[in-house]
Design a protein around this nucleic acid. Sequence first.
DNA 1: TTACCATGTCAACGATTGTTGATTTTTCAC
DNA 2: GTGAAAAATCAACAATCGTTGACATGGTAA
Lengths: 192, 192
Amino acid sequence: MSPRVKNAAATREAILASARSRFIEESYDNVGLREIAGDAGVDVALIGRYFGSKEELFKEVLRAGKKPDWLDPSVGHRELPAYLASLAVEEDCADRKKHAEGLLIMLRSASSPKAGEVIRQALREDVLEPIAKLLPGADAEVRSSLALSIFFGTNVMRTIMAVEPLCQCDSGSVRGHMQRLLEAALTGDRTA
Amino acid sequence: MSPRVKNAAATREAILASARSRFIEESYDNVGLREIAGDAGVDVALIGRYFGSKEELFKEVLRAGKKPDWLDPSVGHRELPAYLASLAVEEDCADRKKHAEGLLIMLRSASSPKAGEVIRQALREDVLEPIAKLLPGADAEVRSSLALSIFFGTNVMRTIMAVEPLCQCDSGSVRGHMQRLLEAALTGDRTA
DNA sequence: TTACCATGTCAACGATTGTTGATTTTTCAC
DNA sequence: GTGAAAAATCAACAATCGTTGACATGGTAA
C-alpha cells in the first residue's frame, strides 16, 4: 500500500489520539497496538518508533491528558463537592470531560501490572495531592482519597459494571447523589 | 514425572482454590492457567478437562464463592451501613472476609471483555438485588447501587491503587469512614 | 492377575501479542 | 534533477496464551 503523507508531528498526534480513545474504552491489556495503529491509519511499527514501547505510549497518554491547573484554586473547599460532582457528569464543558476521561483511563487499567505503577504515581501526584492541598484540617489526604473513592466507585458502577439504575439515571440526579456523597467524604464531621 | 494421587474431587477443589487465590490478586487477563495449575500442583490440561475453559473456570469461582443468604435478613435497613462497613474491613469473621474477597474478584476483572458479562450478571443477581430488597422507598435500586459504589470505590483506592493514606489507616478508622459514606448512600435524604 | 476406565501427564497446535530489522517511499536541500 | 535523510511500510521474530489430542499411569472390579 502506498505510504501516507509524511508528517511526523501529525501522525504522532494521531497515534496519541487513537490510543487515548482506546484506553478510555478498554483496559491496557485489552488494547492492541494494531487496533491503535489501525484507528490512526498507520502501521504498527510506527508506534514503536515514536513511543518506544506500549508502556511508554500509555505513559504519554496520561501525561498528555493532564493539566497542572485543573483544580481551579479559586474554588473554596466548600464548593469542592459540587465542583467534583459536576466533573463526573459534565458533558458540555470540554475541559472537565477530558479530565474525567483521564480518570477513567486510570480506573480501567488500574489492575494491569504494566500500567499499574504508572497510574498509581500519576494519581498521587496529579489528582490526590492537588485536592488534599485545598482541604483544611489534619487528615486532608485521607479525605482527598475518600473523595476519589466516590468518583471511582460511581464510575465503576456506571461505566464498567454498567449497572442500569445508575446508567439510566438522568445526569442531574446522578450529580445530586454524587454531591451528597462527596460532601460526606470531604467534610470529615461525625455528626452522627 | 509420576502422576499425583488420583482423586478427582480433591484436585478439582485444589484447582478451584488456586484459581480463586489468583483471581483475588490479579485480573482475569493477567492470570495464566499455567500459574493456577502450578499452584494446585497439577498439569494445565486438567483445567480444561474439569472446567472446559478459562471463562467457565472463572464462572465457577464466582458461583462457588456466593452464598444466597449472605445478607442476614434480620438486619434492618437501619443497621445496614454498619453491616456493610464491617464487611469491608473485617478480618476475623471468615464468612464476611470470603464475601468481601468475592466482590474484590469482580472488581479486579470487571474491565475484561471475557469476564465482564459474567461479573455484571453475578453482581446484579447476587449483590445488588438482595440489598435493594432490604431497602424501603422507591429508589431502592439506585441507593443499593450507590452503596456498592462506596464499597468498590474504597476498595479501588485501598487495594488496587494502593493509596497510602487509606492503606495505612487502621481498620477502625476505615470502617468509620465507610459507615459514614454508606449512611449517606443508603439514606437518600436531602437534609442539606 | 487382568482388563478397563478414570485420572493425570506430555507435547504440540494455532492464534495473538509486542517488538525489531530491512526495505520502500516521500520530502527537501543543493 | 539528484542524493540523502526522514517517514512509513512490510515481514518476521520470539514469547505467551488457551486449548486439544495422544499417551501413560493409577485404581478397581471381575
